[in-house]
Design a binder for these strands. Structure first.
Length: 314
RNA sequence: CGCGGAGUAGAGCAGCCUGGUAGCUCGUCGGGCUCAUAACCCGGAGGUCAUGUGGUUCAAAUCCCAUCUCCGCAA
């Protein structure tokens, strides 16, 4: 089966591995986002998918848009039986959706219809979900609205963060896609319509999503911190106005009123314990502006904070 | 050449502006106190202050120059 793959970030590599693990699949080309200046010094950086494909001598296309005739012609030349999309970052126009014999399928990292959209993993953790998963869907014109073909669930533990959820979902996404491909060939899929009444939208993570809101309860603050760790990281401000990112935390008490203003440091015994709207949370590791990640205890030793200081004001 | 911060003992930092004996909080080692301790007390070891055995100076962690490395912002 001739497959065109579309994807961009590291997560898409799980799908590429799944496809290439089946000998009767041929990846005739990949589409990925254009190289962008990234990192310090604005070095032009290829996407993980491009690197992967280049190493295997698979043709790489990086069209700025699919909405013109240039790609339509390319598509005819490639003549795929199926298009697999994982975190590509572009909308597929109708003629693309319609071209392959088996259509276009998408690996989405949530249990659809929950968390449709750009940041399903982060939004699931942020929402305090205890279960999530991957859904392989038959793409249609809407955003993540297609019929669901195969799903896999995973639990989200109380201390899972974006990294662990990402990795766990990657593994099951590989299985889910393998199963989907097999059943496409067998013709044994039974697509399931999404229940629109349960649909939610997982908006892209903005910088404002990363500013810690200590007026929330401790569990919510913890969810925010782990949903954004290790990238891009939740942050607050120290009393001297410096940025302080928080990779890791632990709720100390989930309930209980505090006599002080949310954001106030209540203890520095080995960690930075901060009062929340309800309960308290300990910041276990921190990332000061201009420095690397360090244990909170080390940060405290540098005498940067005192009990009674207030975080988040700036 | 996108903007900025930083390299000082095993860790985190101060000292630099206003050159003149290497300092703080920990850790570590030894001793003491204690029923006991991660608590407390006493003592010790551990640093070519990133590199150039660069420049200025009677004198450089400190001022100047170059290089290397790490990091934050932004995308």
């Amino acid at each position: 089966m001739k497959i065109v793959f579309m994807g961009t970030p590291e997560f898409a590599l799980y799908s590429l591995e799944a496809i290439s693990s089946q000998p009767d699949n041929e990846i005739v080309a990949v589409l990925t986002q254009a190289d962008k200046p990234r990192g310090r010094g604005y070095a032009l950086t290829p996407t993980p998918v491009k690197v992967w494909a280049t190493e295997r001598n698979i043709p790489v296309y990086q069209p700025a848009t699919l909405r013109d005739g240039a790609f339509e012609e390319t598509l005819r030349e490639l003549d795929p039986d199926l298009i697999v999309v994982t975190a590509y970052g572009k909308i597929l126009p109708q003629y693309v959706l319609d071209y392959p014999r088996y259509g276009c399928i998408n690996v989405h990292t949530s249990l659809l219809p929950r968390h449709r959209g750009a940041a399903p993993m982060q939004r699931a953790i942020l929402a305090g979900d205890t279960v999530t998963g991957v859904s392989v869907q038959q793409m249609d014109a809407g955003i993540d609205t297609g019929d669901v073909l195969v799903t896999r669930e995973i639990p989200i533990g109380p201390d899972d963060n974006l990294e662990t959820v990402h990795d766990n979902l990657g593994l099951v996404s590989r299985e889910a896609l393998c199963e989907t491909l097999t059943r496409i060939k067998e013709g044994t899929l039974s697509p399931v319509k999404q229940d629109e009444t349960h649909a939610t939208h997982a908006a892209k993570i903005e910088k404002s999503d990363c500013l810690i809101d200590f007026t929330a309860d401790a569990q919510t603050v913890h969810n925010q911190i782990r949903a954004l760790s290790p990238m891009p990281l939740a942050f607050t401000y120290t009393p001297d106005g410096k940025l302080l990112k928080i990779p890791q935390s632990r709720p100390e008490s989930r309930d209980g009123e505090n006599s002080c203003v949310p954001g106030t440091v209540v203890s520095l015994d080995g960690a930075i314990t901060v009062a929340c709207g309800r309960g308290t949370i300990s910041l276990l590791t921190v990332l000061p502006e201009g420095k690397g990640r360090m244990a909170a205890a080390d940060y405290i030793r540098g005498r940067k904070l005192a009990v009674g200081d207030r975080l988040g004001k700036n």
